[in-house]
């Protein structure tokens, strides 16, 4: 009778995330060690991510690869027309996003960058946020940075966006009156009901979630978190989420990109 319970308890008493991180190499970083969300997941989930065939996120990588060379829009171009082989031309791109865009006078993330290219260079309709096409292309381009350490710029014109992002991270919102930090800074490595809370790092996005059984872009996950604390979520690709994306990327400086990661 006690056997099943004892095993469960034992498994929970030895979370193996401990010691899987590294010390941040910038001063005044809020985390003592930076840990990928992968370290907080179960053996089975890690196994699913570790083999590119078992990882269902690769369905989107392959779809993105097909879209990469597909001509679309009035200019008669595909991504490959300008950028040739993504394996070379897109290497490292995801790791430094969001990035300042001189023309837009604001930082843009990977989804926005792809859509700017579509409307300005391909003369094609931008893809809707959350569409299978945009998520697949984001995953495909993001995947070319797998293993590259996250290295966003936060100085110069990015500074006010970084500060805004930090403020959003610590602001309590919603009926539950909680901030990102309540879970992902103060309580990572503990259970929130039955979920083992991570640091909320972004290096795996878009992420294949076991729950939704599809690729989830980062801003959709942000919305999910805000919904969970009974707040009115900001819109995907809004300035708020962009600032937050920048700030949280900084919290994970040095983490290797895992796109497409597998998470619960």
């Amino acid at each position: 009778m006690w056997c099943g319970g004892a095993i469960a308890q034992d498994a929970l008493e030895h979370p193996d995330w401990q010691g899987k991180g590294f010390a941040p190499n910038v001063p005044d970083h809020p985390l003592r060690e930076i840990i990928s969300g992968l370290a907080f997941r179960t053996h089975e989930t890690k196994a699913m991510q570790s083999d590119d065939f078992n990882n269902p996120g690769f369905l989107a990588v392959e779809e993105g690869a097909a879209l990469w060379s597909k001509v679309d829009g009035a200019a008669g171009k595909s991504c490959a027309s300008c950028h040739q082989e993504a394996v070379q031309s897109m290497k490292g791109v995801r790791a430094s996003m969001p990035k300042w865009d001189e023309k837009q006078k604001k930082p843009v993330n990977l989804e926005q960058r792809i859509n700017i290219c579509r409307s300005e260079n391909m003369k094609a309709e931008p893809w809707k946020f959350g569409s299978p096409e945009l998520t697949a292309m984001t995953t495909y381009v993001g995947h070319q940075s797998r293993g590259t350490p996250v290295s966003v710029r936060t100085d110069g014109p990015m500074k006010p966006w970084f500060d805004r992002g930090r403020q959003l991270f610590y602001d309590r919102v919603g009926q539950l009156d909680m901030s990102c930090a309540n879970c992902h800074e103060k309580n990572y490595g503990k259970f929130l009901r039955a979920d083992f809370v991570s640091q909320g790092q972004t290096n795996g996005f878009p992420t294949y979630r076991l729950q939704t059984q599809r690729l989830v872009p980062l801003h959709e996950r942000f919305q999910g978190c805000m919904f969970d604390v009974r707040a009115d979520p900001y819109k995907p690709l809004s300035d708020e989420f962009l600032a937050l994306e920048l700030y949280i990327a900084w919290r994970g400086l040095g983490l290797p990109v895992e796109t497409p990661a597998v998470r619960n």
């Binding site: 319970g5 309580n187 929130l192």
Partner: peptide, 22 residues
Amino acid sequence: MVVTRNRRQLLAIGAGAVGAVV
């Protein structure tokens, strides 16, 4: 919001016991 491990242990043990019966 963050549940202590004690409560979770109780839940897990409870579920384990029911499972064992079944």
